[in-house]
């Protein structure tokens, strides 16, 4: 077991913090940690970094206590904080050099290939970099030392879709190389692409801990269908699908579970347009946890 939280509790008042949080991540596993803003994702990760003192409970990485053996834990870790911050006046390449002075030299080919992958030119002062560039710099700094375990707090924030995809590819490569990852996100789609297991955090409590395929099966997908005329629309609805929303020529249909019957039904009718309606995390929550606000 690489990462373990045991009844971790930290109260910040007004319902903020984490409460009795327990889960573990096995070696070689990628664990996605999702929840809306303020759910306690960052608080949990800061405990794993040994930055916070738990009110009760504890957490460990490879059997080492995260708070009291933090320096030894950090030898194994690559960390991307929720909000990247750099020393005043530092230049991009100086930041990477500082990380190497602190941790020992990073393999040069790996560093170069990461910079290339993220199309990052680290020369120049960090304060002139865009949010996306700073995020890339943080990712390169965390990955270049080839650590065993990654703690990534919303690692794709500020990245454009192309770079998000590059990040997904990188995570999948690291997974194949047997690395352990804990990735927090507020986007279900992102976690779906990178993680094998998902924990859903709501108001500081873990409300689900499931394999991604279980969640996928249980997850409702919404498709927006457009028909050439109203007769064809009504003909389709006689297949037995109840529309979530209906206008003159289009309907929103919710599908739970296997897609094959739905696709077969589509094939039998003349459909002019098909669109996938991505659900916001709140909608996913509403579905899983019956109406309660996340």
């Amino acid at each position: 077991m690489d990462i373990e939280l045991r009844a971790l509790t930290k109260r910040y008042g007004e319902g903020k913090g984490v409460f009795d949080l327990s889960f573990s991540v096995d070696a070689g596993e990628a664990f996605g940690f999702i929840g809306p803003n303020g759910a306690g994702k960052t608080t949990a990760i800061r405990h794993l970094m040994g930055f916070l003192n738990p009110d009760s409970g504890s957490c460990s990485i490879r059997g080492l206590d995260c708070r009291h053996q933090a320096a030894r834990v950090h030898e194994l870790l690559g960390y991307v904080p929720g909000e990247m911050a750099f020393f005043d006046g530092i230049r991009g390449e100086e930041h990477l050099k500082l990380c190497e002075r602190l941790r020992g030299p990073a393999p040069a080919p790996r560093k170069a290939s990461l910079l290339e992958r993220f199309e990052l030119d680290p020369t120049g002062p960090v304060r002139r970099m865009s949010k996306g560039m700073k995020q890339k710099l943080g990712l390169v700094a965390a990955f270049m030392h080839d650590p065993q375990i990654y703690l990534l707090d919303e690692p794709t924030s500020g990245l454009d879709p192309l770079m998000q995809q590059r990040f997904v590819d990188l995570v999948q490569e690291e997974k194949r190389r047997g690395k352990t990852l804990l990735i927090s996100s507020h986007s279900f789609e992102e976690i779906e692409k990178t993680c094998g297991r998902v924990g859903i955090l709501r108001r500081g409590e873990l409300v689900a801990d499931q394999h991604i395929h279980q969640l996928r099966q249980a997850r409702r997908r919404v498709y927006s269908l457009t028909f050439p005329d109203e007769q064809r629309l009504h003909a389709f609805l006689e297949e037995g699908y109840a529309p979530l929303h209906q206008s003159s020529l289009s309907v929103d249909i919710a599908v739970v579970g296997p897609l094959a019957p739905f696709l077969a039904a589509l094939a039998r009718h003349q459909v002019a347009g098909l669109e996938v309606r991505t659900q916001r995390l709140e909608e996913v929550f509403m579905q899983f946890y019956g109406g309660a606000q996340p």
Binding site: G50, F51, Y79, E83, C99
Partner: peptide, 20 residues
């Protein structure tokens, strides 16, 4: 200031004890 801005995270995430 380094704690408030978060820049000390770079150093504290490295294998150094906090005391050091």
């Amino acid at each position: 200031q380094t704690v408030e801005r978060g820049s000390l995270a770079t150093v504290l995430a490295a294998p150094l004890t906090r005391l050091r």
